[in-house]
Each structure stands twice: as structure tokens, then as C-alpha cells.
Design a protein around this nucleic acid. Sequence first.
DNA 1: TGACATTGGTCAGAGTCTCTGACTAATTTG
DNA 2: CAAATTAGTCAGAGACTCTGACCAATGTCA
Lengths: 146, 146
Amino acid sequence: MVAESELNTGVLLFLPYRALENRVFAALAEAGFDDFTPAQARVMQRIGPDGTRLTELAEQAQITKQTAGFLVDQLEKAGYVTRVPDPTDKRARLVRGAAKAWAAKEVANAVVAEVEREWEEHLGKRRMKQLREALTLLREVTDPWA
Amino acid sequence: MVAESELNTGVLLFLPYRALENRVFAALAEAGFDDFTPAQARVMQRIGPDGTRLTELAEQAQITKQTAGFLVDQLEKAGYVTRVPDPTDKRARLVRGAAKAWAAKEVANAVVAEVEREWEEHLGKRRMKQLREALTLLREVTDPWA
DNA sequence: TGACATTGGTCAGAGTCTCTGACTAATTTG
DNA sequence: CAAATTAGTCAGAGACTCTGACCAATGTCA
């Protein structure tokens, strides 16, 4: 057992993911966006520019639609989203991000960019590129919505 | 915006992590290890060969020690762990994995190895090596216990 | 040595997240 | 058009997590 970590790839993926998420949450809280929870954020993150159906949010977040509904209720109360009728289907409603959500997203994006810069500095441009390449390729076998 | 995904590195890390975790859980359940939850597993995973203190488990899992205590209680009732006094500190106890836990870990390890093989097949040996290299290097800036 | 701070852990209570099951309404299918 | 599917809700329960308060053992340092 020399150099190279013996950690399995799962842990290796999780560690930087968690570090990044922590950074984003801290920055969001500092910017005043402290009235939503991680669970709510994981749903909000998946709202498309033109709104997204509850069922689709649930699928992508891998939670039940009941849970998704519960979380969207909270987000709605906090002013992050609104629900509008889906013009193409009278059963459905579209969950739309409100201005507050996009403002939060901007803060989050800035932090992600910052952390990505730090990582690139640590790894070097070449290795960072390789990392993103490999991960992107991996989506093909791990992302049901790829 | 061409080819290459525009997803941020966080999502890119999360997707394969979740896919792997799902695979492991499914296999565990199929092998009869269906009496513990993901939250419990995330604590159990961190128990060292000679046992680990509650406080340390809590820190590494990034949960409060109360929550860790709650989860270890469940694991103890289900027969996955035992608590023994820490010979070096009368306040502390060591959470030790029981045989059942090591058996589950074996199943989990096998699945992880299988998935890693699949990923290597998809990425090619070279890119898989680069991926693990980059992730391992990233630990230095993202893992507080590195 | 002895007061004081720190550390390991528990108890109690509350809020949040998540699920299963059962149901309504609209849409799609044969 | 009847039957099956899909979008979503309501109700209830279990699981997870936190804050605050607390006790006992250990460490610090004058």
C-alpha cells in the first residue's frame, strides 16, 4: 500500500461534491438566502428556465412526488417559486422559479465558479480538463437523463 | 455552446456518486441487508477496523453527535455494531462493527468493484486512471481528514 | 493542587424530510 | 368510449436532524 489512496471511487467522488455543496450553502447563507434547506435546494436546482412539472422534479431528484410537493410548498411560501397552470395539460402545473430563486442561483453559480478555479489551480489546467472530460463521459452510463 | 456538457463540476460529481450508491443499496437489499437505512449506512461506513468514537463518526459524516448517537442506536438494535468502553478514556466508548456489518461491507465492496470495472470499460483504462488521480489529488483541498 | 475550560456523550423536544397508501381529475390508448 | 396511464393531492406515520441543557471525565495552568 503506497501513495495513491485506496479509497473507492464512490468516496472519492463524494468528498469534493460535499465540499463544494458546503461552500455554496455557506455563501448563500451569508448572502441572506438562509430561508431554505438543502432538501429544498436540491429540488429548486432542477427547475428549468420555463418551469418544470412536479413529477419531473421528483424523478430527477429521486424522491416521491409527494415529497417533492411538500418541498415545493415550502419554496412557494418562502417566495422562491410559483406554480402556474401547464397550458398543454390541465392536470399539470409548472413550477417556476421566482426572481428570488434566480438571484440565489447567481450567487451559487459564482461560488461554483470560484471553487472550480481553486481546483484548477490545485490540479493544473490539464488534469482539471481531464477530470471534467471523464466525468462528462461517465454521465452516459450513470445519468438516466443524459 | 457545443458538445461538452455545461453542467457544473458539482453536478458532474454527484451523478456518478448517486448512481453508485443506488447500485450498492440495491445489491445490499437483494443480499438480505435491508434492515438499515442510507443514513445509518453513511455512519456505519466510517467505522474503523478497531472501532471509532461517536464524536469522530459524527464529524466525518458531518452530523451532530446527537444524530450520530441516534443512528448508532438503530444499528446496535439491528445487530450491526456494538459499543465497548474506550480503554484510553473513561468518558468514551468505541463503536465497533459486528460480523453482520463486515459481511455487508463485503457485499458492498464487491458491487463497487463491479461498477468500477464497468466505468473503466466505458472510459478506457487511461481515462479511468486519470479520473482517480485527479480525484485523489482533489482530496488535498476538499477532505478535512486527508 | 485545584479551579476552569474542554471533550465525549446523553436526554428531551421540536421541526423537517420522506415514505406508503388511497384518491381525484385529465389524458392517452386500443 | 372503456380502460389504462399520468399529474397531482391528502392523510398518516416513520426516520432524520437539529438546538439546548446537562453530566462525567479529561486537560490546562497558575
